[in-house]
Simulated assay, not measured.
Amino acid sequence: MPPLDPATLATPLTADRVVAALRAAGCVFAEDEARLILAAARTPDRLADLVARRVAGHPLELVVGWAEFAGLRIAVEPGVFVPRRRTEFLVEQALAHAPGASVVVDLCCGSGALGAALAAALGAVELHAADIDPAAVRCARRNVPATGHVHTGDLFEALPAQVRGRVDILAANVPYVPTGEVGLLPAEARDHEPLVALDGGTDGLDVLRRVAAEAPHWLAPGGCLLVETSERQSDAALDAFTRAGLTAHLATDDARGATVVLGVTAAAAPGR
């Protein structure tokens, strides 16, 4: 996006001026974005700063400080992965397969959007969220319910031992962009989101394979693992789930461009 004309900042930014600046910068939904930015700005100086950041190419969610996800307002901060609306499909799939879940884990939690959405839908659950990035952990603590727990660490190493074998829903929004394609991402993601939340290794599935291999040790009988991936990676992702001993299948939502791999552990035998 082009820089904001300094002359624009020399005069009060009315709603019309904000829309014009955003439209000139290439924002397709300039009117909608202007309303959000105006609502987030408490002073003229703050408004000018927010408009300048958006025109400079900062993601709208990071400019206004929040993202809408599954009907919730999720706080986001610079340097933290912004939850995508397509990932709401993963939440819907989790709820459909485990509507009575009592223990939920949000792995690679980023802002904690998945965990927050699942807890909001399920009610009184034991929720654990974890991420390797301290900035993400700080942000997740703003979004996860006060009864939830947010941990810092590498995948399952971050979780308390007492969760092992008890997880009903394990949601993992792992990075799945192949290393060689990170540079092809839109600038809003490439320049403003952490590499650790985007780069999934040579074929994009390094972290997914690690999660799938370890998940059966943490899932309760009949518990489910859900991971978002891309359509072209789906066969390899399904294979990773199957190799881990999970009964796996694919769920897609063409309207949102969402692909979710779901794996389920064997249920406990009757009477156990």
Rank of each mutant, 00 (worst) to 15 (best):
I132P: 00
L127F: 03
W66E: 15
H58K: 15
F156M: 10
A70K: 04
L170Y: 03
A135L: 14
L170T: 01
P83K: 05
N143L: 12
A113S: 02
G79E: 10
D168H: 13
L114P: 05
L122I: 05
V76D: 04
A98G: 05
D106E: 11
V80A: 11
L170K: 02
C139R: 00
A158K: 01
D49F: 11
D133P: 07
G57I: 10
V91S: 09
R164N: 10
R166N: 12
A48I: 06
V103R: 00
H97Q: 13
V63M: 08
G112S: 08
E157T: 14
R141M: 11
G71C: 11
A70T: 08
N143H: 07
G148Y: 03
A56V: 11
L95N: 08
V76Y: 06
L159C: 06
W66Q: 09
G115A: 09
A121F: 06
R53K: 14
V104P: 01
P134S: 06
C109F: 02
R73A: 15
F81R: 03
T147C: 12
D106Q: 05
A116L: 07
A75N: 07
A75T: 14
V51H: 01
P160R: 00
A75C: 13
S111T: 12
V144C: 07
P99C: 03
A101R: 01
A171L: 09
L47S: 01
R141C: 12
D154L: 14
V63H: 05
G110P: 07
L159M: 09
F156G: 06
L60Y: 06
T87E: 12
G100R: 07
D154Q: 09
A75V: 15
D168N: 13
A67P: 10
Q93M: 14
A52G: 09
A48G: 14
V150W: 02
P160A: 06
A98C: 11
L62N: 05
E92G: 14
R164Y: 10
A52P: 05
A140C: 11
A140S: 04
L155P: 13
E92V: 15
L159Q: 03
L60W: 02
H151S: 04
I169D: 07
L60A: 08
C108V: 08
A161N: 06
T147L: 12
A130E: 00
G110Y: 01
A101G: 08
P160N: 04
A136F: 03
V150E: 02
A135Y: 00
S111H: 01
E126H: 05
A98P: 08
R138S: 13
A70L: 09
I169Q: 05
D131T: 04
Q162L: 15
A161K: 04
D106S: 10
V64D: 04
E61K: 07
P99V: 04
F81Q: 03
F89W: 11
L95K: 07
A140E: 01
F89A: 10
G79Y: 11
V80L: 12
L107W: 03
L114F: 11
A56Y: 09
V144Q: 04
V125N: 00
L72W: 09
V150L: 10
R164K: 14
A146L: 14
S111A: 15
